[in-house]
Simulated scan of single mutants.
Amino acid sequence: MSLSQELEKLLEPIRGFLHCETPQAWIDEAIKPENETILLRDHANCELKASQTAMWLIRKYAIDESSGALLLEWAKPYEDFVYLCKKNGISQSKKNGLSAPLTPKAGFAHSQDLIDKMVRLIKEEFHHFEQVVEIMEKRDMAYSSLPAGGYARGLMKSARTHEPATLIDKLIIGAYIEARSCERFAKVAPYLDEELRKFYISLLRSEARHYQDYLKLAEAIAGGDIRDRIKIIGEKEAALIQAPDNTFRFHSGVPALAA
C-alpha cells in the first residue's frame, strides 16, 4: 500500500464522521505566509490543550488524589513554558514522563481503560507540542500563547450537565476535535513547505487514533447507542466550522472577510 493510499484509508472514516469539510476559505487563509506563525503558535497551544483536557478527564473520573498530583507534576514543565516563559523544563520532561503508575479510582468500571487511552494521548500530544516548538525555533519564530478561539468553548456548550451524560458528551466532543485536527492537517499539508508537509502528514495516524479512542470510551461508558448524541454534537461542530469567524485559529470558522 502506497503512502497516499494509506492516508486515504485513514481519512475515509474521519470524513464520514465529520458533518462538513473544512471550507476552502479557511485553507486559503491558513496557507498565507503571514499566517504561518499564528498557525504554528496555535497548533502548539492545541497540543497542550489536548493534553490538559485528557489529564482533567483522568483526574476527575479515573484516579485518586495522589495520582492526580503525579499528572500535575508531568504537565508542569509544559505549562511553565507556556504560561511563565520558562524555557528549560521541556528538554528534561522529554525523558521523565510519569514518575509512578496511576492508581485507578474505585467505583468506576472504566477507570483503567480511560487511564490507558488518555495517558497514551497525553504522551503523544506533549511530543507533538515539543515538535512544533522545535520547528518554530528553527524558523526563528518566538513562541507565545494566543487567546483561544471560540471553537472548543462553543462545542462544550453542547455537553449535558448531569453524569454520566456530561462525561459521555465531553468524550464525543474530544473525538470531534481530534477528527477535525486530522482533517485540517491533511487539508493544509499539500500547500506547505516540505518540512511542515512531512510533519503534518506524520501526525495523521495518531490524530485518527485519538478520535477513535474518545469514541470507544464514550460508547463503553454509555453502555448503549450514542448515535443521537454524536449527531447532535457533530451538527454543532459543523456549524462552528462553517460560521463566519473574526479570529483565525487552527479550528476557527470561515474567515469573516471571506464569508
Rank of each mutant, 00 (worst) to 15 (best):
E34T: 14
M156Y: 15
T247F: 14
D245V: 03
P244H: 05
E65H: 10
W74Y: 13
A75F: 07
E237W: 00
V133A: 09
F250D: 05
T53E: 13
K76G: 04
K187S: 11
D80G: 07
Q92K: 12
H127M: 13
L146W: 08
F250V: 12
I230V: 15
A62W: 01
F250G: 02
W26P: 01
P23H: 06
N35K: 10
K76Y: 10
E207Y: 00
K236E: 09
L240G: 03
A44V: 02
I31A: 03
P101V: 04
K9Q: 08
E235F: 06
A148R: 09
Y176E: 02
D213A: 11
I168N: 02
L3D: 14
S202H: 05
A50N: 10
I31C: 06
L70K: 11
M141K: 13
Y214Q: 08
L71K: 01
K157M: 15
A179R: 03
S51K: 10
A69I: 08
E21D: 15
S93I: 00
I63A: 06
L39Y: 04
P13A: 04
S4Y: 08
A259L: 05
K86L: 10
E183W: 00
Y211C: 15
K87A: 12
S91E: 13
G224K: 08
I226M: 03
A142F: 06
P101Q: 08
D80A: 13
P147G: 10
C20V: 15
A62N: 05
P255M: 10
V188T: 03
K49H: 12
Y214T: 04
H210G: 07
M141S: 10
F129A: 06
A159L: 10
D228A: 13
L215V: 07
I172Y: 05
N96V: 00
L3W: 12
E29V: 07
L70A: 12
A100Q: 11
A220R: 15
D28K: 12
S202L: 07
L71H: 03
P77I: 01
L57W: 07
F108G: 00
D225T: 06
H251K: 09
D64A: 07
N35T: 05
R120N: 11
K231F: 15
D113Y: 11
R205K: 14
H251E: 05
I122Y: 04
D169N: 03
D42K: 04
D113I: 10
I233K: 01
I232V: 14
V82S: 07
E73L: 05
H162A: 13
E36V: 14
H19Q: 15
I230W: 09
A142G: 09
A148S: 06
D213M: 14
M1P: 09
K76L: 06
D113K: 08
R180K: 11
Y83G: 00
V254P: 01
L102K: 03
P164T: 12
C46N: 07
S2T: 15
W26Q: 04
Y176C: 03
A54D: 10
Y143P: 01
A222Y: 11
S145Q: 14
T247Y: 14
P77D: 01
G89Y: 07
P164E: 05
I173H: 00
L7T: 13
F250R: 07
Y191D: 09
T37E: 12
A159T: 02
E134H: 14
R249H: 13
F185L: 14
